[in-house]
Amino acid sequence: MIPIQYYLLFAGFLFSVGLVGVLIRRNAIVVFMCIEIMLNSVNLTFVTFSAYLGDATGQIVVFFVMTVAAAEAAVGLAIIISLFRNKQTLNINEINLLKW
C-alpha cells in the first residue's frame, strides 16, 4: 500500500527539479525541457488523484495536457529555430535586446 502522499510528494519533487532547471539553465531548449518535466509532474498528480478517486476526469485532463504539450513543443521549437536563425545563439542570457 503506497499512501497517496508519496505520489503527490514525488510529483512535487519533480516539479521543483523542473523549477531549478528553468532557473539555472541558460540554454533555451534545456529550459523548455525542464518545463516539460514540470508539466509531467502535474500529469503524475492528475493520474494519482484520478486513480485514488476512481474518477476518469484526471486521466482525461492528462490526455489534454499531452496535446497541449505537443502543440507547445511544436510552436516553441519553431520559435527557437527562428530565433537561432537571426541570432545564432540559444543562451537566454544573451537574448536581452528588450529590457528596461
Binding site: G18, L39, T57, V75
Partner: peptide, 30 residues
Amino acid sequence: VAANEASLKYFLLGAFATGFLLYGIALIYG
C-alpha cells in the same frame, strides 16, 4: 530579432506559468 526575442520570452514564461496553473487545477481536482 526583437520579435523573435519577444516570442521566446513570452513562450518560455507562458509555458512556465501554465505549469503552475495546471498544478492548481490538479490540486483542486484532487
